[in-house]
Structure formats: C-alpha cells, structure tokens
Amino acid sequence: MKFLVSRYNPDRDAKPHMQAFEVEVWRGMMLRDALLEIKRQDESFAFRHSCGEGVCGSDGVNVNGSNRLACITPVADLKAPVEIRPFPGRPIIRDLVVDMSQFYAQYKAVEPWLVREDPMPEQEILQSPAERDRLDGLYECILCGCCSTACPSFWWNPDKFHGPQALLTAWRFLADSRDQATEHRLDALEGPYRLFRCHTIMSCVEACPKGLNPTRAIGHIKQLMLEKAI
C-alpha cells in the first residue's frame, strides 16, 4: 500500500514536502504500525507515539485530511495513497512532530483543577450518582489535540481562543458539583476571544477519537453564562 508522508527537516528544508513509501499491509494493521514500518525503512523519519492503544494521545496526525490517532486507525479503512501530514496550523518541529505549546497553554489557562472555597473535608467530597453522571463525556479527554488543531477558529487565533479541548475541560470543571469557582471561571471566559470565537463549525466533534462533543460543552457554557447574567 502506498503512503505519502510529509517530511520536514528544519536544518535542510525550506518547507515540508511529501515522500512516498510502500508498506506491506497485514490484517489488523493500524496506522501506527505502518508509521513504524516507514521508520524501519528510513530511520530519519520522526513521529510521536507511545501507548499504542488510544490512551496516551501522542500519535495524533492528519490522515487524508482528517485528524486521527494513528494507533487506533485501521489501515484497511483508509483510501490509498494514504496522505499523512502533521496537525494543521501547528509549527512543525520535524516531519510529523509539531509544537503543541499553545495548545497546552490554553489548557492551563482554564485552570483544570477543582477549586474549593469551603475548608477541605476530612474525607472525600461525596457526589450523587447523578452529579457524577454529568462528568461523563467530559473527563475522558486525553489531550491528543485532534479537535483543537482541526478547528478553524483555533487556526486563526491560537493565542487568544481557548479552542475546543480547553473549553471541554472548562465545562468539565464548571459541571463538577465539587467545584466552587463557577463565577470566577465564567468571568475568565468573557470577551470576544476565549470562548466566543467558537462558531459551532463542529470540526472538533468530527475529529475527536474518543467520541466526545466539545461543541455541546461550549453550548452548555454559553447557556450557564446567560443564566448567571440575567
């Protein structure tokens, strides 16, 4: 099967170019296996990967135009020639390895931890099953970056717009019954950029390899903001 892989070496190349590789496909082969095979053919080829089972979120790449996790993308589902590029919009460090600093900075900016005003109890803070259910579809995010780097609003304003990943996380903590910083979190999201650059394009929903829905989370944040404003 033919693979076209984006290559870029900052010491040598002015801009990225595509290089063709021929890889023998076996039954059950994932895209990560194909990338490893390409690396066997040319050891200067660089890409990130670790767990190999869709948990660590390291091997996000752009495959035939869609952001995917290579390790859980069956090669059999892909149309040949398979075009593999780094995440769009991110500065390329080498080949498929991109600089995700802005993505992590946006994650950090939404204060992804529980904030308590009350004194901490001796034991754990209890939640009802219903309160716990509100976190389903939110806590599963593995920060692979497939969503935010598929978002046009994040391409245009990655320094100011939080992006779908960070906003999903923002809602994950707003929705948490144990968190007591609702007003502070909502105030921090006001303004035209951080939250409101989202135009519900929904590329994030299509891209998420975990089947999460950042657009819905963003809608919940807007609704909560409105409730608290009137």
Partner: peptide, 11 residues
C-alpha cells in the same frame, strides 16, 4: 477593556 462576548452572542 474587552469587547463584549456574551452580549454580542445573545444579541
């Protein structure tokens, strides 16, 4: 200092 976010969106 910020242009409106929520207001513009609701409007």
């Amino acid at each position: 200092r910020k242009a409106s976010g929520l207001k513009a969106w609701v409007l």
